[in-house]
């Protein structure tokens, strides 16, 4: 902990775990897509599922998916704002298995195929992204993050790292499917990648899918909600 963790943050109430954490999870989804989806389906586990209305967890997730910041007053009006922006949404309770009580599965649509993100709000507004499109991971969202599906072949990692022009904070590797020779590479960075670096990575022959998610603590761009 630091003095700043104790003296802050500025947030939309009522709960850091059920509201702020939910807002950040939604915002991770927005950054992952790079935009507000057309449709968002939320499946809420245990404590999230049982208490979401009384904590505004639903509005927070939805506001996050629209890219709202931690202290954006517009979160309170997220339902109306989503409708006016053409974002279709639904919430339901679901048993997601052996995961943290405050976990949500999000299906975010930009076109026909959804992106599926699982995330937990683990206290004090901190979150963990635990699954992306069926692949387990463990991300805090606090760093600019590069998420790659790449060919599981020799020197693939070297080719990727060669193109990264920011300092690497954390690096995760996982084989997705040996038969298909697919692997997941997640790189958490200390600072943003340059556009050039990102484009070079995306054009590598070993890369099958590439997502770049900016840090959740990055300044909010655009107007977000209307209530700031």
């Amino acid at each position: 902990m630091s003095l700043l963790d104790v003296g802050g943050p500025v947030m939309i109430g009522p709960s850091s775990s059920h509201t702020l954490g939910a807002l950040r999870i939604g915002r991770f989804g927005n950054y992952f897509l790079g935009k507000t989806p057309d449709k968002a389906e939320f499946f809420l586990h245990q404590s999230f599922g049982q208490t979401y209305m009384g904590h505004g967890t639903d509005r927070a997730l939805l506001g996050g998916v629209m890219g709202f910041g931690d202290a954006d007053r517009a979160v309170k009006n997220a339902f109306a704002l989503a409708l006016s922006r053409g974002l279709d949404f639904s919430f339901q309770q679901e048993d997601l298995g052996e995961v943290h009580p405050n976990t949500v599965k999000m299906l975010l649509y930009d076109g026909a195929m959804p992106q599926e993100i699982w995330a937990s709000s683990v206290g004090a507004g901190m979150i963990r992204i635990i699954k992306i499109n069926g692949v387990d991971c463990d991300l805090s969202g606090a760093y600019p993050t590069l998420i790659l599906v790449n060919k599981d072949t020799p020197r693939a990692l070297g080719m990727i790292l060669e193109k990264i022009d920011a300092n690497v904070a954390n690096l995760y590797l996982r084989r997705i499917n040996k038969l298909l020779a697919k692997a997941l590479t997640i790189v958490e960075l200390d600072s943003d990648l340059t556009l050039r670096s990102l484009l070079e990575i995306k054009s590598l022959s070993v890369i099958q899918e590439a997502y770049y998610v900016k840090s959740l603590s990055a300044p909010i761009q655009g107007k977000g909600g209307e209530g700031r």
């Binding site: 104790v6 003296g7 802050g8 943050p9 500025v10 947030m11 939309i12 109430g13 009522p14 709960s15 850091s16 509201t19 702020l20 505004g56 509005r59 202290a71 007053r73 979160v75 309170k76 004090a124 507004g125």
Partner: peptide, 18 residues
């Protein structure tokens, strides 16, 4: 009461004790 109505608060030290 503002916190309980999704108002803006400073979580110092927490939202519930803000």
């Amino acid at each position: 009461e503002s916190n309980a109505s999704m108002g803006r608060v400073v979580a110092c030290p927490t939202a519930g004790a803000s």
